[in-house]
Amino acid sequence: MISAQHLTRRFAARAVVADVSFDVSKSEIVALLGPNGAGKTTTMRMLGGLIAPTSGSVVIDGVPLTRATAGTLRARIGFLTESPGLWDRLTVRENLRTYAALYGLSQPEHAVERAIDVLQLSPQASVRAAELSKGMRQKVALARALLHEPAVMLLDEPTSGLDPEITRGVRRLLEDRRAAGCAILVSTHNLDEAERLADRVAVLHQRLLAIDRPAALRRRLTTGRLIVRVTGDPVRSLETVRRFDPAAAVEGPALVLKVADAEERTPAIVAALVAAGACVVEVRPEMPALEDAYLRLMGRQAG
């Protein structure tokens, strides 16, 4: 649904986005992670046809994004900008009505009421945008991005500054859209959100540093710890587990090993302990957080 190939964007001599390639499939949510100034918003804008790449190409829903096709493709994209950007003197409903007309919807009133209903904005529908809280403004902006039921959604920081309740609502909404076949690219700083929501995570820092499922990214980039509890004194089993990790140690009542792929190596470790006469009570892989993987990638980049 979304295909970016070798996207590069320069401002004068400075490359803000360099040679970025990735795809987002139908019914998939990809989170675009990166620090401030990593090029997330610029990438979003290029994918949404708002600014042109210096080089590289974008294909949306099978159609190459060009100057000639940008207008038509923008009708298929739901774009949530960094700032909600509502007209303050207009009510929520009036804001949405204007956009429904701009998208050329055949039943604009129906689309507006549906969006108000989905985002649970009925109590605020007749309130002027200037009077809304930040969270409500963001919800209205999301309603605006959903009005035309787009096949592709590009969401720049959709839950930025929202309280946990609204954040959860937004997350559910995006899951619903994914289930409806939408391809969704979400830019975020929030690693927890990326992990909960996204099927894949793309780490961007001018270049695309990695793109994978969150769990695969963690496994690939960090060494997990395996916590093994045995009956009796764990020191007696230390020799056995040091065949798998020479630096294995005893921490309290448990043996602690560092293994590259805990899931794959656990059966062999347990078998070796049992063969050595140990009675295994608990084996618990301690997977590193996505944050560790992310920071490691950023560290490599800085290095």
């Binding site: 207008g71 923008r74 994209i77 774009f79 900008t81 700032s83 007209w87 701009l102």
Partner: peptide, 14 residues
């Protein structure tokens, strides 16, 4: 300045 231009330009409006 009101930050309403970008969402507007993200629509099919020419």
């Amino acid at each position: 300045q009101a930050r309403t231009l970008e969402p507007l330009l993200a629509t099919p409006v020419s």
